[in-house]
Design a binder for these strands. Structure first.
Lengths: 342, 342
DNA sequence: CTGAAAGCGCTTACAG
DNA sequence: CTGAAAGCGCTTACAG
């Protein structure tokens, strides 16, 4: 490929002048500038970002490590981050940890090794990810997103107020007349799993609701599907189920549909995240909406702050969620006549 | 950060020996190797990928430009690519063109500028993306994925046999008893839009089906929603609607549900892609399944071939689709008694 | 305004 | 087996 050397030679100037003319920095006569730029265009020159980065210490790349891009929530989040960063002329290097510890460490090190300007990370584990996250954070600017690790007061974090989100969902179903509720969510391996689960217990108590034994596993559609079955097999169905995320909620919806349990006729369901899935399922899903764009905005802002001032303390940003109403918590009348004749 | 220089100094060897010891290349005594490695570990040395890349001409990064990561199909595809590439120790730099021409060019140039080893691109336009794609393909290995540009015999391409996929969907609904069908898909701006639309016309003729006026726009859930309305307003509903992708299909499903049109009771629906959405909607969606993992595999293989042999001709790989049956084309009996009493 | 030179961090012939 | 040196492509003090 054509290098700066080629352009300089073709234009008959030094490589230093060529660099300055192209970069628009330093004093260069208008004539030379024009000449160099024309030559560069003619030769199809494109600056080698690698050389530039080596010289400058870093290129305009930022990394993000998510547990699973194919989860619609992370897909949407990555999309928003890409969008925010592109405005700052920054590129996004994306890595997928598959929610696995060793893969996560490997990805983080790869990113650090290429001296990205900073890293956004959604930790795979609340406890076991801590060493890796801390180690990398010591090397370069890092902001935790959505999930965090334990004892992270020194680390930056941007996410939502999960406790309040679960509270919104619970208060909503209570208003809809639910008295007995159940939590179907993820385990304690992630901060988000913990926070939502604990919040459920706390708020249930506050509101004086009755809670059935929770069903706990991972954030997967398939889990929701099987959870619906287990719920159906119980002596009595709860009035409402609060799902840990939209994937589980839509799984529950699909599972109930297969077994002739009507939603919201027989049971109400709420999700969490506010992904496109909530519109696609039938009935549409009432869900706790995360402000994806705002999360990305705040995340980028935090990272920029860390980049500017390496010693900056790690701020913890908790954004508010909003309840997005769907039909899954509609009036408790049967919508599908075939299941329970009115 | 600690550099190779630091490690060499601390170990009391030359930088060349340190490099060889760490890289495992060239003859180095076992003792020195151990010494250097221990020193590197102790100092927390991590090779600077930038310096290495500059020296070697490229680092292990491959780029991918998709129209929209948040589309579940592309999210899944990106996930598969990341997976395939990670086995080869390659990283994935992801860029989002938003389906816009200038953004696409900008992203492609950014990727080329940082001398990625190669690029996977899903062109935004069939015709207008051609100059950009061709230009970049002249600079480095490029493989078109899912969509292609016109006159691309010199460019590599990996995607599915869209014509056959639409054929599978049409034959299926015909078997289910559909006589009148309609296509609700995307416009001709993308190759995929063209191929699926044309195939629909061809196969309808072959099978002797009657086709209503198609409804054409973009691959969006919202479009499916509004298309359902337009369909309902027609004097007669078709027996089946063949959607251009899962997003449109689930939009149609949601739209019909809102207006009390029963699927598959009143009309059958098929999607295209085989995303997670097909399981999430209710009824579940019959869709033309794309072999995502195989596409990624074949794509990587093509790119590797191009990397090895720059002059290699651009192979066009068309993978087969399979019909994934859901309830949206189930027996044409009414599933929901409230809509049309049996 | 312009050029020669140094140096970012690394790897790999080239000598020894 | 090991080291000195060149060079990947670039930018930026430093002179002039």
């Amino acid at each position: 490929m054509v290098s700066l050397r080629d352009v300089a030679d073709a234009a008959g100037v030094s490589i230093a002048t060529a660099s300055r003319a192209l970069g628009g920095k330093g004093r260069v006569s208008e004539a030379t500038t024009r000449l160099v730029r024309e030559t560069a265009d003619r030769l199809g020159y494109q600056v080698n970002a690698l050389g530039k980065a080596l010289r400058e210490g870093s290129d305009g790349v930022v990394g993000i490590v998510v547990p699973m891009v194919s989860n619609p929530f992370y897909a949407a989040l990555v999309h928003e981050f890409e969008d925010q960063l592109s405005r700052l002329n920054l590129k996004l290097l994306i890595a997928d940890s598959h929610g696995e510890l060793d893969r996560e460490l490997e990805r983080l090190e790869a990113l650090a090794g290429r001296r990205v300007r900073g890293i956004f990370a959604v930790p795979a584990y609340f406890d076991r990810s801590r060493p890796a996250i801390s180690k990398i954070a010591r090397q370069l600017p890092l902001v935790q997103v959505d999930r965090r690790v334990e004892d992270d007061s020194a680390l930056a974090f941007v996410g939502v107020d999960n406790a309040d989100g679960i509270g919104q969902a619970l208060r909503h179903v209570a208003e809809q007349g639910a008295g007995t509720v159940v939590f179907v969510g993820a385990d304690d391996r992630t901060s988000v799993g913990r926070e939502r689960r604990r919040a459920f217990e706390t708020v249930v108590e506050q509101l004086g609701l009755a809670a059935q034994e929770p069903i706990i596993d991972r954030y997967l559609f398939e889990f929701g599907l099987s959870a619906a079955e287990r719920l159906r097999d119980r002596p009595t169905l709860p009035d409402a189920v609060i799902a840990g995320d939209d994937l589980i909620a839509t799984g529950l919806l699909a599972g109930f549909a297969r077994h002739g349990v009507s939603v919201p006729g027989d049971v109400l369901i709420t999700g969490f995240d506010g992904t496109i899935l909530a519109d696609i399922c039938n009935p549409t899903l009432t869900t706790v909406q995360q402000p994806m764009a705002t999360i990305a905005e705040a995340g980028v802002e935090e990272l920029l702050r860390k980049i500017d001032d390496t010693g900056a303390a790690g701020a913890h940003v908790r954004l508010p969620t909003t309840l997005r109403r769907g039909d899954s918590t509609g009036a408790r009348v049967t919508s599908s006549a075939s299941h329970s004749a009115t």
